[in-house]
Design a protein around this nucleic acid. Sequence first.
DNA 1: CCAGGGACTCAG
DNA 2: CATCGCTGAGTCCCTGG
Length: 1105
Amino acid sequence: MSQGKKGNFIGDGTSFLNTPTSPTKMVATRFSSIRSSISHDPFDDDLDSALMKIDVGGEVKELVSASSRSYSNRSISSDDMIPCGQVVSKIDNGNETDNDENDEEEEDQDVPPESSSSEDEVSIGKLHGFGDYATYFQNKTAKQQKADKDYLEWETKRRGGSTERPIFSGCVIHVNGHTVPSINEIHRLVILYGGKFIHYLHNKGAATHIICDKLTPRKMIQFKNYKVVKAQWLVDSISKGELLDWSDYRVIEDVVYGQQRLGFSKLEDKIEEEEVEKQVQSEIIMPNDPESDDEMIPLTQSQNEQNEEVTLSQSGEAHIEELNTNFELTANRQLDARNPDFLEHFFAYSRLHHLSTWKAELRARFLKKILNETTPSQEKKKYDVRVVFHVDFDCFFAAASALNRPDLDINKDPIAVSHGQRTSDVASCNYIARSKGVKNGMWMAQARKLCPELIILDYDFEAYERHSNAMYDYLIQSEIFDAIFPVSVDEVLLDATSYCNANADGVTSTVNALATKLRSDIFSKTSCTVSVGASKNVLLAKLSLRRAKPNGQYYLHENFEEFLENIPARNLPGIGGSIVRKLTAAIGADVNHVPLISDLGKLSLMKLKSIFGEKTGIKLFNYARGIDDTSIDIRRKGDALKRKSVSVDVNYGIRFDTVSQLDIFLIDISKELYRRLIRLTMCGTSITLRLARRAPEAPIEPEKFLGMGHCVFANKSAKFGVPTNDWGIIGSELKALYRMLNIPVHELRGISITMTNLEDVENIKKNRQMKLPFALNTGENDSNKLKPSPVSSPRKFEEENDIDWEVFNCLPLSIQLEQREELLRRGIIPPEVDSHPQPIMESTPTRGTSKVYMQQLIPKMEEEGVSYTKVIESPTRRSPTKRKLQSPSYKQTSPSKRRQSPIKSRLQSPSRMEIPRPNYSTYDETGSYDESVFNALPSSVQKEVLFTLEEKAKNKMAYGHHKSAPVLDSKWLSRKHPLVKLPLFQNKPTTIGSMKSLISGWISSSLLQGGPHLDDVNMMLDYIEKLLQQDNLLRSMSIFQHIKTRLFCESISFESVGSPYTENQDTKALVEVGFKEWRQIIVSSIVPMIQRYCIEHDIEVDTST
DNA sequence: CCAGGGACTCAG
DNA sequence: CATCGCTGAGTCCCTGG
Ligand SMILES: Nc1ccn([C@H]2C[C@H](O)[C@@H](COP(=O)(O)OP(=O)(O)OP(=O)(O)O)O2)c(=O)n1
């Protein structure tokens, strides 16, 4: 559970950038080479040779400066363009020392842990987080030991001569796989405490210890002669100050990616269950983790998973079959979403996930910083010239990753960062590669075609984060700027109006000097170059930045029109492919024509508005004239920066064979969403499920390994009625939503879930109403964090006949849900569920589903290639943007595309499922419901309950109290969703017996939920209809009779004294509703259907109820 | 007319 | 072996009250 617990680079020891675990294989060697001080200035004009000599620990090493000249000989004519590579070392040093004290005092919480020992720093110079580490050029393996020695000396000097105990003296340590702490940190610690560190295991026996938190079976064999220990061994040894016995930290077996965790596969391993259990436990409760109490999710989760295991292994032959399948797949490393550890692994490797996470964290951080500011922002003086800076690292990933390879020259070798060779994306490529036509986002196959000698580097997410933090820390502590607005991990907007206007040298020269200084300072802290664009607004600053790149600066303050006219419109912010296409069409140009800003300027405001809409039209009109009033002041943006949604998207590795596999995954992403919501202390009221389905014409397997290929999208959303963040509730809802979308599991290629209508838990607490399920922990402790209550024993509930719902509702939601399931299972809430064996066990008894679906119960049919009568699809078939990569011409550009949708959508059922929340007091019968129980139900169930109540109320109003059999109206009918066509059962080896037992189970469970699910009812009605169409009246009647019989039996059981049904008033009420629902179905749907058939065929049957 | 929400677009 | 195609915001436009 280390995900999201790393990256203490900034702040009061708590994580700032919540970086997902980064895999070791791409982690940089931070300390492989050392330089004791920054003695050169890379921007020195004299560095024409682009080479400089630096003394590295007595050894002369050639380094390439980052002078922009080696990039290209591009010339910029503007007077304001400062030639790249100015000497600014004086500013650099002076400023740094000046700001140090301020920094220490005022921004105390921003001091990274690494630099906490301030006296040490005085003697050696300021440590800016990781900035100084980053200035060490990385070395090759051969130089490793030397570099380590240098580091030790440097560190010793930094600490004023004191050294740590050589605990690891004599130890040669190698790290394998992902560890906590990271490989870099372990490396540093090993060196610091007298050990040796090796990166590669070239010769057998070279290492004395291998540190490894997780071990794949293959590695297990490979390392069997080594002392393989957990990273904790190192941590504990250091904290104890002595070398601890390694065997106490032996890595025996752990849940690893690529290894099945289901009980079945564990039988194969000769490992004692207890041992594993213990290790799992120790992983869950991490006392050293400063945030561990903020997240006891792992505990809940793990327990659930264990539960799942148990239920799985008990659930009969169907699952053994599935287990076998899994096991086989596992044997050759299952890399898709069927793997239980897929999600964690995927996010650890996903660059886009990292980018998004970083961005969100940065936003939150700066927003919080503003909110915490006690001093009200001084009213700013009005200056004539607004000055906005846009700062961006040059080819960020490529530059940062290249630092791990001292043998490469970012200015000479074509470099790209990517995971693979062929269909893998180029995340970032340097300017050499770009000169060959390689672009960010391009596939490797194409990139290599354009540039065969392209050098591919691994990602190093930790390094990116480090450099980013170094930059932001620096910008904050400089206290130059009126506003700092983070755009992304490598990009920032700055307002330097006050500083530049106040300076006596004049605005222009001050801006240029400041830009130079920024570039120099940031380079010295990160060894990565940044470019700076500056102008009077955000738009122009951005365009200037583009002009400045790479490794340059540009201040645009005059001749704006001239500057703008020849820039492609595409370069404007917010103008993407779609708008450009419309624009091209509007100016009547050829498709291949690149529309320029000057082209845009020719269009009237009216015209622009009519093509692009009100806001976009105005924006484009202004952009064409260099006008932009976007604010970058977080203070003024205020609410605009407040989060409006939280989502988890996975459009990679989505491959399922069965619905139960999908259900497990849906629970997994629900848990992920829950974790994110908890971190944000937020709840939401709406959930949206977005599914990507393989497009009909797309091949089963797309070109990209485990990619999504060409897909069609479908969305469906639901409201919870009350805010929640509980993964159980979310998971149940998602399962329900999936079933409504009618997409066969094996066609799925992508899954996204989004929580909206967010509310802060604190706010909810403040003005909470009665019994809101999230109103936990309202204790006096003003804890900011949502701390779930300790798990209480299920036994407590088992022994109570009457459940105290008050107590129940004070439990964390996930526990509530667990308990609820437990109660269900033990027959306390729904005593019947257990006594009736669940029919047809294809569906996994996954937790959280409190609704039994017939669809779920008979999915076998669905998977056997059944045709569909109607399938809900997204009214608008959106072609995913990614398609552009594969077939640029795919996207339809017809501007009328959208206008069609109204008609279409009218023909189709609404894709949003409304769950009405009527005023309870309106209906007296609702008084018998405990709202807290109601609230805890999945909304799909709530919907049913409310609907029944509403109908009842309506009928009551219309016909008075005595009207007993409410009629179905058109509204009810219109609520029907198109359904999957049922397979013809008689062609299958389905017996009427199995059909009956299925129905029995369905009826008994549905009663406890206030009636059957609408979809299931429709399924059944469809089925009966089909039977009748085939003149199979016998079977229709048989089903009808069976339903009647079952309901009769249930009602007897219900009314008998002491029945578990009547144990609880709420259950009783729900069951009553359930009976009425069923009655309604029989009277209004089944009977008329059969009667109609009989009349048509002149048959007489008994349809009395 | 307005609020709410789905679809689409964009950016790094 | 592949490979890690996320995620939040803004805008347009429709719908329902
Ligand atoms: N399709 C993309 C675009 C960007 N990135 C990542 C890698 C980039 O290094 C980083 C920053 O993106 P930029 O657009 O700023 O591009 P670069 O920094 O690579 O180049 P430059 O800013 O010099 O144009 O985001 C990515 O993974 N995939």
